[in-house]
Amino acid sequence: DLSALRVEEVQNVINAMQKILECPICLELIKEPVSTKCDHIFCKFCMLKLLNQKKGPSQCPLCKNDITKRSLQESTRFSQLVEELLKIICAFQLDTGLEYANSYNFAKKENNSPEHLKDEVSIIQSMGYRNRAKRLLQSEPENPSLQETSLSVQLSNLGTVRTLRTKQRIQPQRTSVYIELGSDSSEDTVNKATYCSVGDQELLQITPQGTRDEISLDSAKKAACEFSETDVTNTEHHQPSNNDLNTTEKRAAERHPEKYQGSSVSNLHVEPCGTNTHASSLQHENSSLLLTKDRMNVEKAEF
């Protein structure tokens, strides 16, 4: 173990290094160091905050020279020094078990990766560091076993998940096959086929009936047209017969005018059967003409 005197000496050296690497504005270890034209180094955030307070150039807090945003430059070497100082402080805390008085939040800088452990060898070769390295080497064999167990647990979990997924996939297939086998029997399929065939026959029977009705309507229309044509021909046949009657009536009127007047009046009210309204109107006109002729003949006879 380190003596108290040596611990104090190391602590004083760390404090001196820390004062050199402090920012003059925030009085902390410089984060993202930036250098000016006057070779003074500050935190990048502190300098941008200072420049944004005034429009135009501002003055350096140490030498009062003008500073602009374009004049600022990043210093990589200074950032490396800060990183190495942080590593020294971490090693000091691990070796002594004491917390550094002016320690900052170094938890963000710590890294437990194997590459980081290899890099620590180049920091300080001390008894405390050696003991700590031995402890780490002793704890390393235990870690692979834990990793193997965790991997086995994960693989077993994956296997159970896969088996569950396969079961879920197989179950719908089985149910679907069961439904297909038990849903419709052979008799049901035959009945469905016969039902479809009967429906098709009914459709075939319905369509000819409609065509037959249309044919019957067409035949009825044709018969009505033929009947009207026969009526017209009958009226045409009746007209010459009426003319013959008129000639006979004229002759009778010349011989017996008194008797014919009474008979002509009675004939006005008689309509021949089986004739249309057109034929009756023609008869009325003929009878009126005959009456006028008879009157003329009677007057001539009187004179």
Rank of each mutant, 00 (worst) to 15 (best):
K49N: 02
R6A: 06
S241N: 02
S186A: 02
P257R: 04
A279T: 14
E22Q: 03
R130I: 08
E74N: 03
P33I: 14
G97V: 00
K222D: 13
N297S: 12
S139I: 03
E140Q: 09
R70K: 08
N143I: 06
T160W: 14
A223L: 04
C43M: 15
L81G: 14
L51G: 07
Q147L: 02
C23M: 15
L164G: 11
R251Y: 07
K300I: 08
F45N: 12
E202P: 11
M127A: 01
E187W: 00
K49H: 06
D39E: 03
C43G: 08
M127G: 14
K55H: 05
L151Q: 13
S263R: 07
N15D: 07
A224Q: 12
A91C: 10
V232D: 11
K118S: 06
N52I: 12
L86W: 03
E202K: 11
H237Y: 08
H278P: 10
A253F: 14
K54L: 07
A279I: 07
F78A: 12
T160G: 04
C38N: 15
L204H: 14
R212I: 05
S35T: 10
S216W: 00
D1T: 04
F42H: 13
Y129V: 10
D218G: 14
K259A: 01
E148W: 11
R255M: 09
I124G: 07
L217W: 14
L117S: 09
S58V: 08
T163H: 10
S3W: 13
D213T: 01
K134V: 12
N297T: 02
N157P: 09
H256L: 06
E148A: 06
K19L: 03
A107V: 11
K134H: 14
R169G: 10
P208H: 04
S150L: 01
I89P: 09
N102T: 05
E110K: 00
C90F: 07
N157W: 15
L164V: 09
E148S: 07
G56C: 12
L48C: 12
T233V: 02
N112H: 14
S156H: 08
R77A: 14
S176F: 00
L203R: 08
P144K: 10
K19Q: 03
P33H: 10
E254F: 14
N143M: 04
D218A: 03
Y260Q: 09
V7Y: 05
K134A: 08
D218S: 07
Q93V: 09
Y260I: 07
F303V: 10
E32F: 10
Q125C: 15
Y104N: 00
C60H: 14
L164H: 13
D95Y: 15
K109D: 11
L245P: 02
V190D: 11
K49E: 06
K37H: 03
K300T: 00
I41F: 04
P141A: 13
L51H: 12
F78G: 02
L137M: 13
G159N: 12
M127W: 14
S58Q: 01
M127R: 07
V82N: 05
T211K: 06
S219C: 12
M296V: 12
N105Y: 04
N12E: 05
V7H: 08
D200I: 00
Q261P: 08
T36R: 13
S3C: 06
Q171R: 14
E226G: 00
R174W: 03
P144L: 05
V190S: 03
I67V: 05
Q80E: 07
R6D: 05
D184T: 01
S71I: 13
L117R: 12
K31R: 08
T149N: 09
T247C: 08
E249A: 11
T247P: 07
I89Q: 11
S185H: 03
Q138W: 02
K31F: 12
A91H: 12
E22F: 08
Q147D: 03
T277Q: 14
E254W: 05
K259N: 04
R77H: 02
I30W: 04
V265R: 03
L86A: 06
T149W: 02
S219N: 08
K54A: 12
L94I: 08
G262A: 10
Y100S: 15
T189I: 05
T149I: 00
E180K: 10
S150M: 06
K134Q: 10
S186D: 04
S139P: 09
E22R: 10
K293T: 04
Q201C: 00
E115S: 09
S156A: 13
N246E: 11
Q11T: 09
V7D: 07
Q201T: 14
M47H: 03
Q138H: 06
G210F: 14
S280V: 08
V121G: 08
G56M: 12
I30F: 09
S186L: 02
I30P: 06
D294N: 05
V161W: 00
T248E: 09
L94Q: 04
C23Q: 15
R165F: 02
Q261G: 11
R162V: 08
N111Q: 05
S58H: 07
R130Y: 03
H40E: 04
D39W: 03
N234V: 05
G210Y: 00
K19H: 06
R130V: 06
V13G: 09
M127T: 04
D119Y: 13
P61Q: 04
R174S: 04
S197C: 02
M17G: 14
L217M: 13
L5R: 05
T230N: 05
F42N: 14
R255F: 15
L86C: 10
Y104F: 10
L85P: 13
K44E: 06
G159V: 11
M17F: 11
N15G: 09
G210T: 01
L158P: 14
G199E: 07
T163E: 04
